[in-house]
Design a binder for these strands. Structure first.
Lengths: 211, 211, 211, 211
DNA sequence: TATGAATGAGGATTCATTCAT
DNA sequence: GATGAATGAATCCTCATTCAT
């Protein structure tokens, strides 16, 4: 029988299929509430098949995070600042990066829910998530330090604190934007990634007093 | 047999004791990982005793959140702005409120971990947590609106968005401050509530460009 | 309801009941083939009840062995030789001890099957069994050494080797005697403990050439 | 694709290879703990390949025992007594046979561990092992009967009992000799087959009192 | 109020075996 | 002959909850 049926994924694709299904289930239902039987049920394979591809429930989660982390960091790291510029340049650069990040989040909302959501599980998993977030924050830190080096930001500021504040801001924005059901009536729903990036960048540099 | 033994807490206190123990366990281990047997073990009572005071594991969690929410909102709502003032007044007022909030968080870190952490569980529980956070965010919103009314902030700003950004900022700061082990090497550890409040308020109003 | 029903064992007896049932099942079916559901089924209790009394399947096995080991060693150690005597004394003393041992084995055949049978399981369990057998062999060793001290046996003999040979003899005899189905048509079935003890003691001291 | 790769064993040899690997695994880890995946893993072939050569896990075990049994019995049966002789002759003949047996055991320790060890499994398998041991015991029985016929041993002795005792002795000696790790500090470790055979034969005929 | 034994549904994981290629 | 992906029955153990005393 040729492997041309529609909803079956072939060969090396089974692994992918299971990861995709698991990602969605983990994001929507949470780690604990997601049963292996749910995952294989969605995939239309037997329970044992899962264990051909993954050592355990924890293992597939970790792998999902690991893969997502790489993609996410690639998005943030791109566009590292090279030359000095005006304040406007700086705001625009930040806006561009945030825009890329929000677009990525929009396209990978289940992954973002895993990373930013409040559904985690075992110590190992929590650690993997925390690591990923730290890596993100670090990317922001590097950008701020570079801007100081180029004398675009005042030298006096506490860079680690500021990158923490920035990361907090962004986590909150993405959460409210994508998981609206959890944050009804917030100020971000319905906005485009572009709009959000502009507003966030403005707040980042000028605070509440910036128009 | 009368309950007059030395290290037992009497009637009305048992409930409190169980809630305190459960709060700590939930915060440290997470909802799922916390077993009723852990709670009663810590309390030194029998398994069945738990169910005399609480309908279920979910019920005690909900009650803990409910109680904490009231205290938390009391802290935030106090100091609602009455009269107009200078920008400096505004920053100082915000700083004062943040300082109260951070002090409360410091004194109630387990509760904050439940509210801000990433360990939640059933739909009902997640909802209770989300409600509490929304209520917090609303308190910020009212303050911003009042400041606009008093012409202390530009009318043009999107108030809901700004309160979301503010809430994000504060959530992130508190998380990094109290749950350091999860966010090693961030820029907030070791700071006092007062210092943090000052820095956060500055960022709130002036952004990265403020000195 | 008074706890006077016939086939239910009360209070602290549940543990005993489960151990007795498990002992029999382990002996007859083997460790792996014995399911927890078999044990609780025989006991007429729910699956979870088992885990109220024992940490795991392995744990109950280990406990059974441990308990049996103490009884067994008590039987062997009694009658440690004090004074010198004739060869006949020595043979009779050995016969008496073997007789006690065989009677114990007869009354505790399931335990003996666990210890001497070929049904063991996890490393921990195999170790516990091996330990018990070594302890038995040691008891024989002490007796032989004492007999040499009293000049009842020639000094030249290799005591450890001889106690190994003796233990081998006894293990084989008990196995063949109690688990006849596994050794059909051997020379011990149907004999009394007394007869067996006499024959074994004779062989022990005089070998094949003894009448 | 022809099976001409370098480290692959061709057609008829694959079966042998699998049996050898399985023998070792069964002996070392036990029947239950040995997984088909272990066997094929060691052999470097795919899981399915196993089932081209053997009907089941049980089947390969049975086949291993069957093959070993024939070799073992050949060793014991050789040297059946023809003519009468002195007691010394008899002891020497026994010693010679035991020496052959111990040498065989030394060269086939995995097989002996299967036969004498305490790791067996299904009823069918246990039966096959028991049969083999009975066959061994029978060989000893024939020898004793022949010795009586030739008036080298007293007529009065219970031949079946004595062959059981003899078999017990030998089983114990071999176990302690080869599987030292299970019987630490026994009196046989480090001895040569020749030495053991001499000591055992002496005990066989003269008991503890023989020098 | 308090106890603690009992319940039983539920879920992760294992592994011998099958089979299309 | 050989592959390796797929199967699914089997089983241990967990833990929230109940209830007789």
């Amino acid at each position: 029988m040729p492997t041309s049926d529609s909803d079956v994924q072939y060969n090396g694709e089974r692994r992918r299929q299971l990861m995709n299904i698991a990602l969605k289930r983990f994001a929507v239902d949470g780690y604990h509430a997601t049963k292996i039987s749910d995952i294989v049920g969605d995939a239309g394979v037997a329970q044992g098949t899962f264990y051909w591809y993954f050592k355990s429930k924890e293992a597939i989660f970790l792998e999902i995070i690991k893969e997502g982390r790489e993609q996410l960091l690639a998005v943030i790291s791109r566009g590292y600042r090279r030359d000095a510029g005006t304040v406007l340049d700086m705001v625009q650069a930040s806006e561009a990066m945030l825009c890329r990040l929000f677009l990525f989040a929009e396209a990978n909302r289940y992954l973002m829910e895993l990373l930013l959501g409040r559904k985690a599980a075992s110590d190992l998993i929590n650690q993997a998530i925390a690591d990923t977030r730290m890596a993100m924050e670090n990317a922001f830190l590097l950008n701020i330090e570079r801007a100081i080096e180029l004398r675009m930001l005042p030298e006096a500021i506490d860079t680690r604190l500021r990158s923490s504040l920035l990361m907090s801001l962004i986590e909150g924005v993405i959460s409210r934007w994508l998981f609206e059901s959890m944050f009804p009536g917030n100020g971000v729903e319905g906005k485009t990634a572009q709009q959000l990036a502009a507003e966030t960048a403005k707040f980042e540099f000028f605070g509440l007093l910036g128009i």
